[in-house]
Write a protein that binds this DNA or RNA. Structure first.
Lengths: 342, 342
DNA sequence: TTGAAAGCGCTAACAT
DNA sequence: ATGTTAGCGCTTTCAA
């Protein structure tokens, strides 16, 4: 494998000249550049990323810390859409994307990536109150952007939805359709995103003089199967809900499968609203009313903020809220005026 | 940031001793190890990946070359399931996963990753006849595994499905249900996976004395929208198909949306069989009959083969076929004996 | 069992 | 405009 020395020898210049040509320095004559480039090409030279990184202390890569609950993430289309936004921006700026999965010890992984200089910055995917990884990253002043918002006052950049507001509006939508017994089908209850959404849900209830009922709030794992089980539990209640707000479309799908198996007609006997508006929401039966959170945009902005931090070396944090919108389809009953609610 | 020298100084040993402790060399006394480890911990030392890599020429990362048609991939659940298999194995073996997206010049990206020593090996996602990237990787003798099979006789390891056989069986299934006019809804026609599946489809037709009709084979882009458009085209034919084999579930979903919009009843007026059996196939309406290809397993095996290549330094190639199975649900009509076909 | 020293391939002062 | 030199942080002979 050709090194910079080989190229220098062939082009009859010094290694530093080659290095300058590589960086397209303006202080090198065109003639020399030509000769060096020819040698570069002839030897099929490719710079060694290690050697370069050792000197420059940059990697040209951004890391994504996949949480231990990773499989849920990977397989959830919402993650894929987010990733595709991240990846798009990374590519435009010439960055690679390094996925790092933490078996358990997330802090160890962060150190490995950050301090081990494997990436120039890091994207964090989920957080919960007391999150130690967040604190660690902030302490280290490592370039980082969180998807979501920090639960505690940690100085970190983030990109988030207005989750409280979004859940509030979605719940209100169901209330306006006449529902009084509304269930909440959420993912892991300690996650900030779940906390925010459940809070929005509750405040809409309270506003309508409906007392939030803890039994109406089930939290499960972020998978289709989780939605299935959660819905079974909700429907098993003596006074079962007539409508359910799911914190994720995949949960909603699982819930719909459960309801369909039990013979509930949707939306007439059970209205459902999901979250995230994945592409398949439109294809469900009935088509799923869902809160569009613009995952792709979240990915794009997160990556942009991160790369900006990396390239400018800025250390102060910056955050951004992406607005959401309720996409009304058939599963909520708004398009079924003939509904027959109690 | 503490270096190995700082640790050495604190522990009152030489840098090489520290290095040996890091590698857990057996020739270091327990007492020294203890002292060094203490210093390591006290300084919160983390090895610099560049410096180490420069010496060892290894990265502890595997690369995935995302094709230019990347967005299709990312957002397709089948890719996510595959990735989750890859990622699982990578984590177990302590490897990171580097995603590299090629704007256009895939060969350049391969060189950057492989020769630039950013990854220890590479996973290739799709291929077509005359694929130059494949040839390049094989020439370089770089550790690599292809998802699919090489179209040309290139010495490369791969993990594939029995696509010809699978499409043959799926088509035969439709023929046995009484269909004679069967359409094929595929992705990019130049991809090997499409070629294999269309061949299996044709041979089942031929076997049943049905002449393959090129107009019955539409190829489109690998997205829901592609399926939608392709199906519109098939249904617009004077003698439209009564059944369609789609080369991907997402295409099938798009096709089903088109058919539903036009008022076709499925499976009675139009039977559909998909490919890949993504999790949502079960949730479609009607639930989608699909060829299960075990994407997760493909990912696991691809990663295992690659890491084996990397760790053993073996250079000879190895390939593996993952069996498929037809999962019969409602969209093909096999569960609707009351169907009324011509 | 440990240390000294060389060198991986590159960049970046500093010199010229 | 180009060359010389030092050094990034680590591993690995070679010596002791």
């Amino acid at each position: 494998m050709a090194t910079i020395k080989d190229v220098a020898r062939l082009a009859q210049v010094s290694p530093s000249t080659v290095s300058r040509v590589l960086a397209n320095s303006s202080r090198i004559s065109e003639e020399t550049k030509r000769r060096v480039r020819e040698a570069l090409h002839q030897l099929d030279y490719h710079p060694n990323a290690f050697a370069r990184g050792l000197v420059t202390n940059t990697t040209g890569a951004i890391g994504i810390l996949i949480p231990p609950s990773m499989n849920e993430f990977f397989v959830n289309p919402f993650f894929a859409e987010w990733m595709s936004g991240v990846s798009e921006v990374a590519r435009e700026h010439g960055f690679d994307t390094v996925l790092s999965t933490s078996a358990r010890d997330e802090e160890e992984v962060v150190d490995r990536m950050v301090r081990g200089r494997r990436v120039d910055g890091i994207l964090l995917l989920e957080t919960r109150p007391g999150d130690r990884v967040l604190r660690l990253v902030a302490e280290r002043q490592f370039p980082a952007v969180l998807l979501g918002r920090p639960a505690d006052p940690v100085p970190i950049s983030y990109v988030n939805n207005d989750n409280v507001e979004a859940a509030y509006r979605a719940t209100q939508h169901l209330i306006r359709l006449g529902h009084r017994r509304i269930g909440f089908l959420g993912g892991a209850s300690e996650l900030v995103v779940t906390i925010d959404r459940v809070n929005g849900y509750r405040s809409a209830l309270v506003e309508a003089d409906i007392a939030p009922d803890p039994r109406m709030e089930v939290s499960s794992f972020f998978l289709e199967q989780g939605g299935y089980l959660g819905m079974m539990r909700l429907l098993a209640m003596p006074e079962r809900p007539t409508a359910v707000l799911a914190s994720d479309d995949i949960l909603a799908f699982g819930g719909m499968r459960a309801a369909a198996e039990l013979g509930f007609r949707m939306p007439e006997e059970l209205a459902i609203v999901g979250f995230n508006d994945i592409r398949l929401a439109e294809l469900a039966n009935p088509s799923l009313t869902s809160v569009r959170v613009h995952m792709h945009r979240l990915g794009v902005r997160a990556a942009e903020l991160l790369i900006e931090q990396i390239e400018t070396g800025r250390t102060h944090t910056k955050s951004e809220i992406i607005e959401t919108e309720l996409i009304v389809r058939n599963s909520c009953g708004a398009n079924t005026p003939s509904q027959n609610l109690v």
